[in-house]
C-alpha cells in the first residue's frame, strides 16, 4: 500500500491507532482483540488525545500499550482499574475511557470494584479478555474457568465459573455483550456500539491462552469455543448520521439507537432474542450454560439509564479544567462563613 492510505471520519490513518509491538505469546487471543480494537477505534473515529486506555495487571492489562500509542495509558493495580477509571472520568468527562481487564483481574481480585463500577454506571468500555486462567503466573485456574475443565497439568477445576455477563446484568449493567477473540466480524461492531453507549459497557471476550489453556479438556480453547459458540445475532454498527441500509428480510433485524444517535443493527440468527429484555437475557445465559454453549452477541442493553456524570449533574466543563474563580469561595462568602461566633 502507498502512503495515500485511507483516512477515517476524523481524517486519521489507521496507523495512528496502532501501538507498540505486542510482547504476548504468538497466537494469544488478546492480540486478536487488540487488532479488533484498532479497527473499531479507527472505524469509530476515536480521537486519540481523548482516549484514556486503562488497565489492571495481567496479560490482558499489558495490551493498552499495543494500540493507539499517542493516547494516554494507565496500567494500574491488579483488579483496581475500575476505581481509577471512575476517578478519571469524573475528572474529565470528555475522555473516552477504555478499560482492559482479564478474568483474574475482574472476577477474582477486582470483583468488588467491577461490581461498583457497574452499579455507578461509569461511562466507559470495559473489556474482559477472558481466558479462564492466570497466564502471567503460568496457568493457574481463574474464577471464570468452568467446573470440570482441565488445566494443562491435568488438574480438574471443581468450582463453578463466575459468569461475568450474568453478574453484570444482575447488577444493572446497561450494556453487556459476550464475544470471541477470533470473531472480529462480531466483535468490531460490538466494540463500536460500546464506545457509543453512555454508561458502563461490559464486553466479556473469550480469548484463548495458547500457552496454558488451549488443550483438550479446556472450555476456553479455540477448538472448544468454535464448536460451542452460539451467536444470537450478527451485529452491525451504523455511525450517527449515516443512513441505515437494511437488506435483510423484514423482522429479522433489530435496530437499537444508542445515546449518540448511532445504531447497532442486530441481524437475528436464533429465534426472537430481544436484548432490551433483562429476564430474557438472564434466561438465555442460563439456558445456554445448561446446554454447554457459549452464547455470544449483545446480551443486554439499556439506553435510558443515566451515567454517573449525568446523575451527579457534573458541569459540562471537565472538573480538571476548572479554575480558582470557579472553585474558591468569594472573599465575601468566606468572611461570612468564618465570622467568629457565626
Amino acid at each position: 500500500m502507498s502512503t495515500t492510505t485511507n483516512l477515517n471520519i476524523i481524517g486519521l490513518p489507521r496507523d495512528v491507532y496502532k501501538g507498540l509491538p505486542t510482547t504476548l505469546c504468538a497466537g494469544c487471543g488478546h492480540n486478536s482483540i487488540t487488532n479488533h480494537l484498532v479497527k473499531a477505534l479507527y472505524d469509530f473515529g476515536a480521537q486519540p488525545h481523548r482516549l484514556a486506555k486503562m488497565s489492571g495487571i495481567g496479560c490482558s492489562s499489558k495490551t493498552p500499550a499495543y494500540f493507539v500509542e499517542q493516547a494516554h495509558g494507565f496500567n494500574g493495580l491488579h483488579g483496581r482499574m475500575p476505581s481509577a477509571a471512575t476517578g478519571a472520568k469524573l475528572a474529565n468527562r470528555d475522555l473516552l475511557v477504555l478499560g482492559i481487564s482479564g478474568d483474574g483481574d475482574t472476577a477474582s481480585i477486582g470483583l468488588g470494584q467491577f461490581c461498583h463500577m457497574i452499579r455507578r454506571n461509569v461511562d466507559c468500555t470495559y473489556i474482559i479478555e477472558n481466558n479462564g486462567c492466570y497466564g502471567l503466573t503460568k496457568g493457574q485456574f481463574s474464577a471464570t474457568a468452568d467446573a470440570g475443565s482441565k488445566q494443562k497439568n491435568g488438574k480438574i477445576n471443581d468450582y463453578a465459573a463466575i459468569d461475568l455477563c450474568g453478574l453484570a446484568i444482575e447488577l444493572g449493567a446497561t450494556f453487556v455483550a459476550r464475544s470471541f477473540s477470533g470473531d472480529g466480524k462480531q466483535l468490531v461492531p460490538l466494540l463500536q456500539a460500546a464506545f457509543a453507549h453512555k454508561g458502563a459497557a461490559v464486553l466479556d471476550v473469550v480469548s484463548p491462552c495458547v500457552t496454558f489453556n488451549d488443550h483438550v479438556g479446556s472450555t476456553k480453547s479455540y477448538a472448544y469455543v468454535k464448536e460451542h459458540d452460539f451467536a444470537l445475532h450478527a451485529p452491525d454498527f451504523i455511525m450517527h448520521g449515516k443512513e441505515i441500509e437494511v437488506d435483510y428480510e423484514p423482522g429479522t433485524v433489530q435496530s437499537i439507537e444508542l445515546e449518540d444517535g448511532s445504531h447497532v443493527l442486530l441481524r437475528k440468527l436464533h429465534g426472537d432474542y430481544d436484548p432490551t429484555n433483562v429476564m430474557g437475557a438472564l434466561g438465555t445465559i442460563h439456558e445456554a450454560r445448561e446446554r454447554g454453549e457459549l452464547v455470544t452477541g449483545l446480551l443486554y442493553v439499556d439506553t435510558k439509564e443515566t451515567d454517573l456524570c449525568e446523575r451527579e449533574h457534573l458541569s459540562e466543563t471537565p472538573l480538571a479544567q476548572l479554575r480558582e474563580e470557579d472553585l474558591r469561595l468569594s472573599r465575601e462568602e468566606f468572611a461570612k462563613l468564618t465570622t467568629p461566633l457565626a
Binding site: 484514556a52 486503562m54 494507565f74 494500574g76 476505581s83 481509577a84 477509571a85 471512575t86 476517578g87 478519571a88 472520568k89 469524573l90 475528572a91 474529565n92 475522555l95 471537565p318 472538573l319 480538571a320 479544567q321
Partner: peptide, 8 residues
C-alpha cells in the same frame, strides 16, 4: 489517583 492523573 485516577482523578489526579486526569488533572483534577
Amino acid at each position: 489517583f485516577g482523578a489526579g492523573w486526569a488533572g483534577a
